[in-house]
Design a binder for these strands. Structure first.
Lengths: 248, 248
DNA sequence: ACCTGAACACCGTTCAAGT
DNA sequence: ACCTGAACACCGTTCAAGT
C-alpha cells in the first residue's frame, strides 16, 4: 500500500559494512551515505516541487538535492514525466490513507474530495499534474476510492462508469483551476488584492452583466466551499437520476 | 467577437501598395509577401499544433512556417504561453460561434458542451491547454456562454457561481482526460486494441472487483456518450437543488 | 517600426568510462 | 550493478544590428 515508509536498501548497506572490514576503515567519500533508490528520488522530487514549484523540477535540481550525477536518476526512473507522476502519486497516496472510514458514503465522498482539494492547496503542482494523464497511478487511485463509495450509494454498471467519470473529471478540473490560483497567490495577505484584480479583469474583458455579477461575487468567494458545492450538485444529480432518494 | 474571420491588415497592405507606386516595382524579396501580425502568427501556431502536436509547438517551428526570424514572434506575442492560449481561444471562438441559438437552455448547455468536446477531439492540444489557466480567454468564453444558459434556467447569484464553476470544471477535466486519450490513439482502427490494453492495465494494476468491472466496460465504451451523461448529471443536480423542476 | 539571426542560458537524455 | 559527468541535441528568449 504505502510505498513511502519501507526501510531502504538494507541488503546493500550491510554488504558495504562487510567489505570495510577487510579494507581501510571506511573510504570517507564526500558523497551521501545512503544508496540511491526510486523512493529516495521521488522524495527528493517532492521536496524540490514543494519549494521551487513545477518549473523548478529539473533533473539537475534533483541530482543536486541528492548530490549525485545526472544519469543516476535514469537507473531508477525512466522519465521526468514518470517522476512527476510518481511524486503526485506519493501525495495522493497519503491523502487516501488518511481520508478513510466514514460509514455514510455521501460523507465519505465529500471527505475524499476535500482531502484532494487540501492536498492540492498544499502542493499546487499536483493539481496541474493530475489532469495530464488519465492512467497515472494517482488518478487510478482516486477513481477506485470514489468508485467504491458510489457503489455503496447503490450505483452500478454503466451508471457507475458515468457517475465515476463525471466525479473524477470534475475533481480534476477543479484541482487544476484551484492549483493555478494557489500557484499565483502564495501568501494569504495578497489574496484579497488578487481577487480584486481578477474581478476587474473579468469586468473589463467582458461587458456581459452576468459576468460582471460573477466578478463582483469573486470578492467574498471561498474556493473550498465552492468546490464542495460542486460535489453536492454532482451527488444530487446522481441520486436524483437513480430514483428519488432523500434530498441532501 | 470573432477575431479569426476579420480580414487581415488592410491598412498595412494598402500602405505598401501606395509606397510601391513611387519606388521600384516591388522589391521582390525572397521573404513571404504578407506582413507579420498577431493573427497570422496564431494561425500558424494552430497549424503547427494540429500537425505536430503540443510538443511540436516550438518558436522555431512557427518561424519556419512563416519563414521569418525567431525574434519576430516577440514583436507580436509576449510569450509562448500566450501564443498557446491564443491558439486555444481561436478554436473555442469558432465553437462558440457555431453552437449558438437553441431556445431550450438545457439543450443549449448540451450543445455547447458537445461542441467543446468535438473541438478537443479534433485538436487534442486544446484539451490539455484549457485546464492550465482559469483566466485565459478561451476559459472565460466558455464560462460566459454556459453562465448565460444557466441563468436562463433560473439559477442566479451564488447558486449561479457554484453551478457555473461546477460545470466548467467538469468540462475542463473531461476535456483533459479525453485529449490524453485522443492524443495517444490517432487512428480509429487501433482504438479497440488501445481500450483492450487499458482494460488489461487496469485489471493488472488494481485487483478491486469494482475496477475490474469498470475495466471490462471500457471495451464498449463511448467517450462522447459518457461525457454527455456527465453533463446531464450536473444539470439534474442543479435543477434538483433549486426545487423540483421537471426531470430530464 | 519591424524584422533578423547569432548568442545566451538553460533544458532532458545518453553513454563511455569508472568503481 | 551502480554511478559519474561530459557530450549531444535540443529549447525559449534577448538584443545589437540591419532595413
Amino acid at each position: 500500500m504505502d510505498r513511502w515508509s519501507t526501510p531502504l536498501l538494507l541488503d546493500q548497506r550491510s554488504k558495504s559494512v562487510k567489505m570495510s572490514f577487510m579494507t581501510t576503515p571506511a573510504p570517507r567519500t564526500p558523497r551521501r551515505s545512503d544508496a540511491l533508490s526510486r523512493e529516495r528520488i521521488v522524495e527528493a522530487a517532492i521536496e524540490v516541487l514543494d519549494t521551487a514549484g513545477e518549473s523548478g523540477l529539473t533533473v539537475r535540481a534533483v541530482t543536486a538535492h541528492l548530490s549525485t550525477g545526472r544519469g543516476a536518476i535514469y537507473h531508477h526512473v525512466t522519465n521526468k514525466d514518470e517522476l512527476l507522476a510518481a511524486a503526485a502519486d506519493g501525495v495522493i497516496s497519503q491523502v487516501m490513507a488518511t481520508a478513510v472510514g466514514d460509514e455514510d458514503p455521501r460523507r465519505a465522498v465529500r471527505a475524499l474530495a476535500l482531502g484532494i482539494f487540501d492536498a492540492i492547496d498544499d502542493h499546487p503542482w499536483v493539481g496541474t499534474q493530475l489532469p495530464r494523464d488519465p492512467l497515472q497511478p494517482a488518478v487510478l487511485q482516486i477513481w477506485r476510492n470514489l468508485g467504491v463509495q458510489l457503489h455503496h450509494l447503490g450505483v452500478a454498471g454503466t451508471a457507475l462508469s458515468d457517475a465515476g467519470s463525471a466525479l473524477v473529471n470534475y475533481i480534476l478540473g477543479a484541482a487544476a483551476q484551484h492549483a493555478a490560483g494557489a500557484r499565483r497567490v502564495p501568501d494569504d495577505a495578497a489574496r484579497k488584492d488578487h481577487l480584486g484584480r481578477i474581478a476587474a479583469q473579468w469586468a473589463q474583458l467582458d461587458a456581459h452583466p452576468l459576468m460582471r455579477e460573477s466578478a463582483a461575487l469573486l470578492h467574498e468567494h471561498d474556493d473550498r466551499a465552492q468546490f464542495l458545492a460542486g460535489v453536492d450538485i454532482f451527488l444530487a444529480g446522481v441520486l436524483h437520476r437513480k430514483g428519488g432518494t432523500a434530498p441532501l
